[in-house]
Design a protein around this nucleic acid. Sequence first.
DNA 1: TATGAAATTAGCCGGTA
DNA 2: TACCGGCTAATTTCATA
Lengths: 153, 153
Amino acid sequence: MLRVDVIDQRIISRLVADARSSYAEIGKAVSLSAPAVKRRVDRLLETGVLRGFTAVVNPEALGWGTEAFVEVHCQGNVSPDRIRQRLEPLPEVVAAYTVSGAADAIVHLRAANIHHLEDALERLRAVDMVSRTVSTVVLSTLLERPPAPEPGQ
Amino acid sequence: MLRVDVIDQRIISRLVADARSSYAEIGKAVSLSAPAVKRRVDRLLETGVLRGFTAVVNPEALGWGTEAFVEVHCQGNVSPDRIRQRLEPLPEVVAAYTVSGAADAIVHLRAANIHHLEDALERLRAVDMVSRTVSTVVLSTLLERPPAPEPGQ
DNA sequence: TATGAAATTAGCCGGTA
DNA sequence: TACCGGCTAATTTCATA
């Protein structure tokens, strides 16, 4: 049900590189007809291997020039689902993870500027379960890329 | 040159939600003809507001089940560009940022499993400029989403 | 806006495990 | 039988002018 063969991986690679390329074009690269490619893509979407297709936007161009990673420490035992529920309404949260170690979660924030970031941090700290936060402001983005289609190991 | 109006924002929203939707479909939503939408999208790509289109893959489905954030401490003064050059060859690095604070950089790693992650960490630590690393293993992903088309502030 | 070219998509058939 | 791919045709979409 979650079988992904070599051809699927090559199709995924193509779609990761350019999600708007046509099935015919992809088919030429993997020696398949366009309908065959569509069938595989539909199956990959259905089985959840592919979650969808999206545009990659330049955050700075949209006025999201400032970002930070925030370690969130919670008081008491909090379920991951409850943390997610509280973080979801904050529009500045672009990603959040529960983690091992001292902190309970790592939250990736994006804001228009330092003042906006400060404001977002304040709202994050105001979430009832949050007891302490440790922020690390991003100075520059060195690298951002999708995971390779097949794990190296 | 980097002007983005309200209609552009709505087009970007649509493309972020589904990069494979047709220009005609987007046009219907923003009350524009398909060629008009195409002109705007082309312009957004040219000015760098849109970087491209990509498929969102389920990392677990492809065997990338383990991830970690790593604080990297470097010895001496190292330029961001040099750090990027050294990180780029490591396929497990999906994102990297220079940051303020004690650490010099934060690296987002994705691996097939804990053993693979350990292996990748070892290769990261072997990079000459790296003096110390602090790893935080991700237990679960609470949230992952693109930034909203317009900043809240 | 309109027109030719290209892509999408559903249906049908054949080969194979 | 179930699965997978190719082929065809109707429709939609694209990219010109």
